[in-house]
Design a protein around this nucleic acid. Structure first.
Lengths: 374, 374
DNA sequence: ACCAGTTCTGTGAACGTTAACACGCGCACC
DNA sequence: GGTGCGCGTGTTAACGTTCACAGAACTGGT
């Protein structure tokens, strides 16, 4: 565990208001004595026979540079292998071409995909991304993350923020810092939000099962305090209600297969259950196993539908019918929204939207079939 | 698709040597006219009745500050809600407290977990991380990523780099930039590497199956050009060889369930196959499904062992015996190694190691059992 | 030839921090 | 009572950009 040369910021910076005094304890090694002296604008300028300002203009695509001069400068840059010093530029312009991402549970497929979607879109737009993970979504940790990102002077923040507490915390960020939340709820009271239309997805799944002749549809739900979970429950419930079907009771769990297995065992024991809509594919995996162990065939005895369309859900036993969620698109859209908010002046005419919904799609495989009652 | 205000760097910067002329096309909005004038050292200094340099000393934990003065300064910082401007600091010290990560396939569980492991360890060590994803692992893209990170003056780079081409590319990075590769091969010719002991893992799995009485073990392999895959094949092959067992032919595939399914179907058709070691859990999922469809029971007829221990592999049908890989640890170790390389002077006595191996562990569940021949 | 209006280019001053050095003070040591 | 040293502090100069302004070099019309 090499934690040398700097103290733990987490410990030294007690409250948020206190800047972190860290780094370079007394015994630090003396700074490298011979600075490498990298090539800077002045060098390029000298070689090209112009002033540093002209070099700057070329770099920033300023129109008022003679074509011939521009080429001479570009040639000089090339031959010196010049790269502009972004720190200096950030110092004066106060923008770093860097975006911050607040990540939560980024080891899971969904968040990881959003992260990737954001990052590649950001690169195409000329931005770098820095990431600050949080272990929990409480206000304190989120604000700490915002603070860390602010210190590194990011131009904007995207929070992969599946819970309300985050958008609330975001509202406390310095107003000059644009924030966008992605994933999670739509009740965008605080920050602009991009998310999937969870209710629509749930409707798709539930209606599909009703259409197959099932009298009603049971639901293996996610955690009670996650908006995504709540919205899926709502969508499911409303669809049943609209169809005049009984709405079975809901039991909350976590997002993993273990939770699905637990819920699945209970449902497998109930002969009235012929169709199960699962809050995500991992839960579905657990349900599938529980049904298998109970000797129920899928889809002959019980139909199962998931949510997410994880990479391998087409290879579950049997291949899972599920609601496809385009996480990459979610990421890209959130980046686009952030950029819009960043560039539009507060008084601009077309205010960017505060809420973007991405529509999910049903992917029908073999885990769903006609009701055995038919 | 909001890509306003800046041109696409990817397009304008043809070769690597050319700095990117981007941003602010002629019609750019004039810079914000009223700069907010944030609080800086001088403000703190004035309030505390000292010079800015003393403030700097307090911030950097310099020992030569009287306790009473230090407290007055800290108090001033607190009351002004001062935060140090990292861009200015980076400009003069040439270190940014930021590390770069080159990510590949970060939507998958393994890389995503490493990313997370690196990020949290980095935070504890006082570093921010910036991420640069690459779509492919060819030299060009990797060098481009390094270049992007360099421009943002990262202090070091960790490459989630499962292929040789990456470490080779890394070797071409500016020598002042410390690089570490994580995951992938151990043939660390180019850059220091942290990886799992794939051969040992494969040995664990294979030996486990042999010990269960299987005459030999078949292998559902990963891609031929990935060192991780190759090392697992080697470990498997050597174990069989040492036991005097027949070494069945190997067919290469990809890392996903689809590939496992394809390989599994062929194996299911071969009655001689009683034990299958899969290059990862996703392949195992496909194999499991193929066996199930062919009417083979697991583990009664055929035993299956995976690699990775993905989150839900304990809920496959049946629960998968697999080789557990601690991705988070991998990330932490790679960070530690990078930090060691960064801080140790080239002439220092204890040179940091160039190769760190993390030992995997066998997790026995129910997909593996005694050979049916017994 | 002159002036006004562009277009192009250069000069000097920020930006907010750390590095290098100089200074004054108190203390110990001959 | 110097001399030397360590401590605490202040002054000045970097670091490599961009911004604001001034000036030079071209236009084109009289």
């Amino acid at each position: 565990m090499a934690r040398r040369r700097r103290t733990l910021c987490a410990l030294t910076s007690g409250s948020l208001g206190v800047p972190l005094p860290s780094r370079k304890p007394a015994d630090a090694a003396p700074a490298a004595v011979a600075r490498p002296r990298l090539t800077v604008m002045r060098d390029v300028a000298k070689l090209a026979g112009v002033s540093h300002q002209t070099v700057s203009r070329v770099l920033n695509n300023h129109p008022n540079v003679r074509q011939e001069t521009r080429e001479r400068v570009l040639e000089a840059m090339r031959s010196l292998n010049y790269r502009r010093n972004l720190a200096a530029r950030t110092l004066v312009t106060r923008q770093s071409d860097t975006l911050g991402i607040i990540g939560f549970e980024t080891t899971l497929f969904g968040p990881a995909s959003m992260l990737y979607g954001i990052e590649s879109a950001a690169r195409d737009a000329g931005y770098m991304v820095s990431i600050a993970s949080v272990r929990d979504l409480d206000r304190k940790q989120v604000l700490e993350a915002v603070d860390r990102l602010t210190q590194h002077s990011v131009d904007g923040v995207i929070a992969i923020a599946p819970k309300q507490s985050v958008t609330h915390a975001l509202a406390q960020a310095p107003p000059s810092l644009q924030c966008v939340a992605v994933g999670g709820s739509g009740e965008s009271d605080a920050a602009p939000t991009v998310s999937i239309d969870n209710a629509a997805g749930a409707r798709l799944a539930t209606q599909h099962l009703l259409d197959l002749g099932h009298a009603t549809v049971h639901h293996a739900a996610g955690p009670a305090d996650w908006p995504e979970s709540v919205e899926r429950i709502e969508g499911w419930r409303r669809t049943l209600y609209a169809a005049g079907a009984v709405v079975p009771p809901v039991e909350h769990g976590w997002w993993d297969a273990e939770s699905g297995y637990a819920q699945g065992r209970k449902m497998a024991a109930d002969p009235a259950v012929t169709a199960i809509f699962c809050a995500n594919d991992r839960i579905a995996l657990g349900v599938l196993r529980a049904l298998h162990e109970a000797g129920k065939r899928v889809p002959e005895d019980v139909s199962v539908v998931g949510f997410d369309d994880m990479p391998d859900s087409g290879f579950f036993v049997p291949p899972l019918t599920t609601v496809h969620q385009d996480f990459g698109e979610l990421g890209r859209r959130s980046l686009a929204l952030l950029l819009e908010h960043m560039t539009s002046s507060p008084t601009a005419d077309p205010q960017p939207p505060d809420r973007v919904l991405v529509t999910p799609q049903l992917v029908i495989r073999t885990s769903s079939g006609p009701s055995p009652a038919l």
